[in-house]
Amino acid sequence: MHLLVCHHGLWGNAEHLQFLTNAISQRQPDLKLLCCNSNRGINTLDGIDVCGDRIVRDILELLQSEPSITEISFLGYSLGGLICRYAIGKLFAHGTFSSVQPRLFVTMATPHLGSELPKVSMWKPHVAFFNRAFNTLTRTFTSRTGHQLTLRDQYHDGLPLLIMMADHDSCFIQGLQLFARRACFVNVQNDPTVRFTTGSIEHSNPYRKRPAEVIDPQYPSIVRIVPSEDAVLVSRPFNPTDIPKYGMFILLAPVFITIALTALSSYALYHRANRISGIDVENEWFKEFKQKALTESCKDVLDSTTTGEAESHQHISALLTQESTNIRHWMVDNLNRLGWEKVHVRLEQRRAHAGIVVRRASDKTTDQVSYLVDKYFTDLDFVSTAKK
């Protein structure tokens, strides 16, 4: 039997992936689906590692109760992709993949490099303000998870969790390496939550200056960059209607942000102790792999980016606020060594982050889900192994 583990995003629940899982189930009714709900809602604020520990517990309990499961795949949406990556590392460390074969790993709009937006020149005040507000909101509003998403945590030896998860000698990468296929779906526009570079594990976004073209008319939302010889530089023209829109945002956003941060963060912190009872917050299991996770290559990158205080947490944090840093390039290069099938999705709706998985009934564009099902869940080898 083939187990497919699906995980929702931040503040989400299993219902957010209902359209997606229904489409997969219709195509592959023999798949065993585990739509993780132990991290629903506010539980996603506890940290990528704590959330990952919860689904590892769910997976191990299911494997124990159903020994007929011999293969496993993962599908993670948004934050769920990082939670799945963490869970894969822990399952690898525990030796789970010696008896259960890893098959397919797919992420959709997942911030593989974190979620912090870059600093922008004050000549674009609305963008600069939005980026700064978004970064502050992420760190404060999303509690422990937000610090991990912005690489401001100290998971092990003063280094952020996402850096540890990108180390090519870590259990996280070694676990991912075992999967037969790895794919990441990413929005090319209208997704300020997960920008293209972090969702597609790239150094830059080529769609900022070059047009896109549809690959197959059957899937009009799936695009690629127009070849360089045919490309025409494109740019978004100035729209006078943006002035009152951004002006209103700059005036009102601080008020709403302050109220939201105070109320929701206080609520999350107050209830956190009860939510994480029984979870290995100190990550004792990881200490067995720290020599692999903290490699000399990782230390070399940090040393090359500092002047005297190479392992200073404050200095690393300052570097990571930039769009291009040695550390981010190192993360991109390490993750890309795995080999990914990268699928670029262009949705015209304003909330493309929700639309990529058809999270709401109002999301009318669904061909990206059809593409996922057709290309990743109808492969003959996949079908034959799923029906064993």
Rank of each mutant, 00 (worst) to 15 (best):
226 V>N: 03
235 S>G: 10
220 P>Q: 04
209 K>C: 07
182 R>F: 10
197 T>E: 15
189 Q>G: 04
208 R>W: 07
165 M>V: 05
215 I>V: 15
186 V>M: 10
199 G>T: 09
179 F>P: 15
178 L>E: 13
214 V>G: 10
215 I>P: 10
202 E>H: 08
172 F>L: 05
235 S>H: 06
176 L>C: 14
238 F>K: 09
227 P>G: 06
234 V>Y: 01
202 E>S: 15
230 D>A: 06
171 C>V: 10
171 C>H: 06
237 P>K: 14
178 L>Y: 04
238 F>T: 09
200 S>P: 10
164 M>V: 13
233 L>A: 07
192 P>R: 01
197 T>H: 03
204 S>M: 03
191 D>M: 04
226 V>G: 03
212 A>M: 12
174 Q>C: 05
168 H>N: 02
228 S>N: 07
198 T>I: 03
174 Q>E: 12
200 S>F: 04
195 R>W: 00
221 S>N: 05
168 H>Y: 00
167 D>I: 00
216 D>N: 15
239 N>F: 01
191 D>G: 03
193 T>Y: 02
185 F>W: 11
225 I>M: 03
172 F>A: 09
231 A>I: 03
185 F>V: 11
177 Q>F: 07
213 E>N: 12
166 A>P: 01
171 C>Q: 09
213 E>W: 10
179 F>N: 15
182 R>S: 10
207 Y>M: 11
202 E>C: 13
230 D>G: 12
206 P>I: 05
238 F>R: 07
228 S>Y: 02
192 P>K: 02
228 S>H: 05
184 C>I: 02
190 N>Q: 08
197 T>S: 05
228 S>K: 09
227 P>I: 01
191 D>P: 05
188 V>Y: 07
183 A>Q: 12
217 P>S: 13
237 P>V: 15
172 F>H: 06
227 P>C: 03
177 Q>G: 14
221 S>I: 00
